[in-house]
Write a protein that binds this DNA or RNA. Structure first.
Lengths: 188, 188, 188, 188
DNA sequence: AATGAATGAGCGTTCATTCAT
DNA sequence: TATGAATGAACGCTCATTCAT
């Protein structure tokens, strides 16, 4: 009998530990040695679980997407009025700002390394968007798909601005404004 | 008898030709040889004008930022009502979608390769944001800095969504909605 | 309660299955994993029976040499005249051409990986030659050691030509000629 | 202007120096680093002249084949009777024994790394055989193609026997016997 | 000024071997 | 006994950079 290891579970543990590594250096710039070191395994072990750097990255993005959605949906609950909810969103984003920024780094990297066709073919990650939409619906009680897309787009924009080091955009301030605009638009 | 060349001007010509190269492969993944080929010069020549790959990239981002702002401000003119203006913005973004996406790739790459400190120190690119804000002011006639930040943030979010292959977000549709929300919010 | 296995016999079974593996890829190019797969055991088991890749190869060559001689001597019987015997040899070589070529691959590999000294020291495989000579004596009824060496040398040359893809050399034709030359030489 | 180098000529110089390297370790066992060291260049330079290890080896075999034929044809001249010629051949082979053995190592390696189809397709090296045949014709004054093939086959067998460390086969002795057998066969 | 040959550290990956089970 | 997970040195190859011309 060989060393007893749950191959599949250990693979996922390794993937989970990759987040900061890919976020901070980017796919192309990080080396398999650095990843192995960060994961505290040898390069050989890395290749025992993943056939290539590319495959490791793709499996990682898939796994991280799932986690990201679970995290977000779990945290956004309990606020009452639209305004309260928008501000709760702001607090959530502020609290997780670093994580969100890293996630943007990872996704941008991911999409840059896919050619457009590949993205359209496998559709790949539209289900992520879909789940986000559902979360936005639950949070804001809004059905209008265009309006939900508006909110999500704005959130992404917020994170992107912070990523760019734009300290003039304040997340809570902007979320408060979002709340007001939604209210104004809906009561009209 | 050296070839007579305006060193400074040629340097800028070379930088201008780098856009697609950096956008499509990313800083880490593209090689100096590929850049040299794309620019139709030898690697030796590249190093004659730029001391290193890093320096080339940084000079490129600086130059491209300036161009980006010039382009954007030049194109957004003439619409009358707030609604018309928001929709003009939508048309502009749709027309330049590929360019905008590439620009996001480049900037994300750029910020990823800076450590946070470096970003804050040289402030670096806050003047870009500033110019965008001025452009937004000119376009929408809005003075409120938080509101302007809201609009810019939303625009960045739009481009980011497209970059992620999210075809469910329609730029014109979202811009129309932006116009309505601004109107509703301001008349209130 | 260990599985009951005749260690020594299983070792030989494993060696016997190595023939094609070493012949087709060569010692340096084949990996222990590939060998293990070909033998339908784990690498661990392989190392349980053989201390190293080198040792495995050397034990394999020794075992295969013995088999090779047994095969050859068993098959060459019954022809009467010198001419008939030479032609019987031709038929045998044609029938086993692939095997013979593989055997050349293996032996060349083996001798290449020994430095000259090692070959002379352990004498290593001269007994193989010796057995071949005895077989040639039995087959052709020739005592002259130089003449027997001539015949064996020629046979090796035949196989080597085929290995090199030289389709212009026909084994039966050449064996017929060998018969004629031997006859002419001996009757003289 | 770059460093002035005749790319093509230097490439051939490098190939010429590869002989012992490939002969002594074999294609699969020798590393590009070892080759670079043996050639006194860096690995980078090696890859500047050859796109891959495989390509280097194939170019090397092609170049070495040409040299081999030139060498052999140049040296075999001047003997008078058939017997004298056979013995001249013996002397030549003895003198070049090491080289011939190395050449066998290289060719066997080469053919092992080609699949059978590839060998038949490009025919590849039949022209080598052809030139050898011409040389044998010139040396022995023999037209019969089967007989020439016999002689060449025997020569290859001789070299192969020596490669295998078979010291009981004496090249001059065997060549003398070859002369006698040819004479006996032809006068008959 | 401009070229591209040369370098060698470092990349993604493989492999003989070890060892916990 | 038998397994296959784990290791890390070493592989083929690439790359930013230097420098003779």
């Amino acid at each position: 009998m060989p060393k007893i290891v749950d191959h599949e579970q250990y693979r996922k543990e390794l993937l989970a530990k990759c987040f900061d590594l890919f976020a901070e250096k980017g796919y192309a710039a990080i080396t398999m040695r650095q990843i192995a070191e960060g994961l505290k395994v040898s390069t050989g072990t890395l290749y025992h679980y993943f056939p290539s750097k590319k495959a490791l990255f793709e499996q990682f993005v898939e796994e991280a997407s799932k986690q990201e959605v679970l995290m977000a949906t779990a945290e956004l609950e309990g606020a009452q009025t639209l305004q309260e909810r928008a501000e709760a969103l702001g607090k959530y984003l502020v609290k997780n700002e670093d994580y969100q920024i890293k996630w943007v780094y990872i996704l941008v990297d991911f999409f840059q390394h896919k050619d457009a066709k590949e993205v359209q073919e496998n559709g790949g990650f539209e289900w992520v968007t879909e789940i986000y939409k559902q979360a936005a619906y639950d949070l804001f009680g809004i059905q209008d798909r265009v309006l939900i897309a508006f909110i999500l787009t704005f959130i992404d924009g917020l994170i992107y601005e912070r990523l760019c080091g734009n300290r003039m955009v304040s997340i809570p301030e902007q979320c408060t404004l979002l709340g007001k605009m939604l209210t104004a638009y809906l009561v009209e």
